[in-house]
Structure formats: C-alpha cells, structure tokens
Design a protein around this nucleic acid. Structure first.
Lengths: 233, 233
DNA sequence: CGGCGTGTTGATGTATGTCAAGCGGAGTGG
DNA sequence: CCACTCCGCTTGACATACATCAACACGCCG
C-alpha cells in the first residue's frame, strides 16, 4: 500500500458514501488535503500490521476488514469487524505505530487519509482536553475487550487486577497495593463470572503466591507471573 | 442532586485535579460556564439513572462509581468502574436521556458540568464529522460489552446476529438477509467461543426456527425470539 | 449476644472446550 | 466433464471449567 496512482479528490464526488464519509467531510473542511484513491484489497491482504509506522488512516469503501491484535504467544484476538464507512487505524493515534492489525475478509476497497493532515486540523480546531476525552475512551474500549475475551477465569482475574492496579497507579498510588471498591459480586458481573468463581480464583492466585488479599485490600506480589497469566486467553 | 449551593469556580483552583480535569479545562476555554460544586455521595447513592433527563455531565473527584445498565428482566450489567478524573454521563449524548445508571461504590464526590454548555462549545468548535466519529466509537464500545458479557453461547450468537443485521441494515441492505464475511473460527474468536460451539449454536438457532443458514448466508426469521434470547445474560 | 451482609468453601450438574472423524462445496488438474 | 484435494464446517464422544446450590465463616453494627 505504498504507492497511490491517483488522488480521489474527483472520486469522492462520485462515491456513494460521499455525504457520510469522513474523508469527503475532511475535504470540504480542508480542500488542500490529499486523500488517495481507493485501493483494492484481496482476501487476506493486510491493510496495516501492528507495529507498522502509523501514517495513514483508512476509510473502508466496500468489503469487510478484520481488526485484531496478536499477543506474544501468537494468539490472535479479534477486536472488531469493520464495515464500509468505518475509519480504521486510529487506535494508535498518540503513539506512532499501529497497535492492531487489519486484514481483508473479502475483496475490499479503502481510501487513505494522511494522518498528519488530520492531526494538524485536530490540533488547530479541537481543544486538547476534548481530544484527550475521546482518546481515553478509545483506549478503555480496547482494554475492556481484552478483559472480557479471555476464556479462563484465572486470566480474566489476573487481567482485571493488573488493570485496576494500573488505574490506581495513574491516580498516584503505589500500584502494588490498593483497595478494591467493589464487591465480588460486582467483579463477577463485570467479568462475566459467578461471584463464587471470583472468590475461588482469587484464593488460587494467592496460593500461587502472586497476590495477597485481605478482604478487599490487594497486594500484588509477583507482577511477571500475573501478567503472563493475564495474557493467556 | 438537584440543588447546588456553591459554584466551584474558585474550588477548581484548589482541586488536586486542576491541571488534568475536563472541568477546569472547560473553564479556561469558556470562563462563563457554571460548573457546580463538588457534591458528596454516600455508598449506594445514584448519580443518575437510566432514563433520567440528560442535562449534566459529572467529573469524578474522589471515590469510585459503578456504571451499569439493567435489561428489562431486571438483570444488571456493569459496564465500567469509573475513577477520579473520569467523565461520566456522556453515553447518551445524542439522545436526551442517560442510557446507563451510575451509583457510588464508596463515599465519593463529583462535579457537575451542564451539558448544554458543552454541546454549545462542541458545536461551535468541532466539525460535525469529527463528533460523529467520536460518538460512533462510544456506541460501539457499549455494543461490544453487551456482546461479550453474555454467559451463554446462545445469547452471544443471537446478539451477534442481531448486531450484524443492524450493521448491515445501516449500510442499506434488508437487515433480514445478509452474508457473514467471516469464518466460524473468527466468530468464535470474537465472541470468546470455540468454533465448534458457534457451529452447534447456529444449528440450534435454526432448529428453533429463528434463523435460516446456508453456509455464510443468513436469513433472520423470528426477530422477537432472537432478540429475547440476546437479552438473556 | 444475635442478626446481617459479604465472602469462602464444598458438592454436584451442566455448558462449553477439546479431540477426532466425516461431510460437502470450491477449486484444480487431468 | 469427472475425480481429487483442500478447507471450512458439522457432528459426536469425552473432559473440564465454571455455574449453581447450599452450608458456613467472618467482620460489622446494633
């Protein structure tokens, strides 16, 4: 997807998504932007890969694209199935790499929007705090999925504890020692487990020596092992 | 939470979140806005309820708030645990009611921002297409959670089919008849099920007479029953 | 002390994962 | 055009993780 033969400036006017597509709206707003011609993808062609330099957003024009991440033991986790009119590639907005991969499920076509231009406009127009609000939501979305799609209770609990610890740390506390504000029931509801399972899993994690628990008071002892458990689906 | 005694304009300057809080940023941006004094909540106090008129956003100053929805058979589904500095209440932005409920898990305090003012600024400043992008993401987030937190395979599949049908409909097709672009493997991965379970569940749904399937071609026959199945956790 | 809410632990049932075999359509090559 | 193969899907048999039901322990508060 390196070479674009033709700009789409003209194409947009004839595109069936012209009225709803981000790309054409962007063009109205800043006509000087170069949006590149819809690119045809065959089944199993990648639009981008995790770790690739993030320089382009894509708007799907036709087909279907699978968005997924791969953990370091090679398991694939699908985040989303994106359809025409969806924008993909935004998830790494504040890093400079894609944090997910995108692959075509059908013959598809996408239009490419240079991210630099989008960023420029965003920075000019949108107050920083607002951008942060939107981005935070983006990230939470990803985190949530990765919590819920684990198959084993142990992985979910481990992921939940790490997530909670991270949240706590970003609020200024140690990150190893914190208090859960919710009941086992609530945790179970959130993670899709019975509260008894939450209880059992927590004692199990204690027996492994990875955490210590005293009622709702949590101490994380062995972060490496806990993280590893959280990776397993 | 109807009466606010005191504006927080002064309070913001002394608040520990002053530099990162949306409220204070908003004030810098539009000093005329009235943000209301941090309000103290006891355990199990509601911040807002599903269906309440959406007129206020809340920024959490201290404590922890549980965000949840209740389906019509009364089951609670927790969407999130929100912590200090989080903004809550945005999820119904483009309707005029809250679409979730918020309840304090601990003694907490929140500041109230009138949504009218935020909307006014957003509309002035942020291009409509951009707003749509952010909101769409919001909604997808909610949909995803409600897919993944079902306990039974049948509910997940039903919810998945309905969701897919809706997506399809919003792209202009019938909404009763569509083609899945992904394999059973992918569906299983996405829903956290084995592909065999996906297969079995689909044949089960067919035997119930709720859908017809021909390879990846889906026909939804009995929407009421399917929707009902999708509700059950 | 007694009652209540919350959490733990045990016994049992069940839904779903796993392994394995077989089916059927789509594409390929003869 | 037919046979062959491959891949995705289905179906069955079995194993297992988790839900459910139930009893009980603990801290909290009156």
């Amino acid at each position: 997807m390196k070479d674009y033969k033709q700009e789409v400036s003209k194409g947009c006017e004839r595109c069936i998504w012209n009225n709803s597509c981000i790309g054409s709206k962007l063009l109205e707003y800043a006509p000087y932007i170069k949006i590149f011609q819809s690119h045809i993808l065959s089944v199993n062609d990648h639009v981008f890969n995790t770790g690739d330099t993030l320089s382009t957003l894509y708007v799907i024009k036709s087909g279907a694209i699978k968005i997924y991440v791969t953990n370091h033991s090679g398991d694939e986790q699908i985040l989303n199935f994106s359809l025409p009119n969806d924008v993909i590639g935004l998830d790494g907005y504040d890093s400079d790499q894609y944090v997910s991969s995108a692959i075509a499920l059908q013959t598809s076509s996408v239009c490419a929007i240079p991210l630099v231009e989008v960023k420029k406009i965003l920075n000019e127009v949108v107050p920083e705090w607002l951008l942060k609000l939107a981005l935070d939501n983006f990230k939470r979305h990803g985190r949530n999925i990765s919590l819920l799609n684990k198959k084993k209770a142990k992985s979910r609990m481990a992921a939940f504890l790490i997530d909670t610890a991270d949240n706590c740390k970003s609020l200024g506390c140690s990150g190893k020692n914190f208090e859960l504000s919710m009941s086992r029931d609530d945790i179970g509801n959130y993670l899709g487990l019975a509260s008894e399972t939450v209880s059992r899993t927590l004692t199990q994690l204690q027996q492994e020596g990875w955490v210590k628990m005293e009622r709702r008071q949590v101490t994380i002892v062995d972060i490496p092992h806990l993280s590893e458990a959280a990776q397993h689906r």
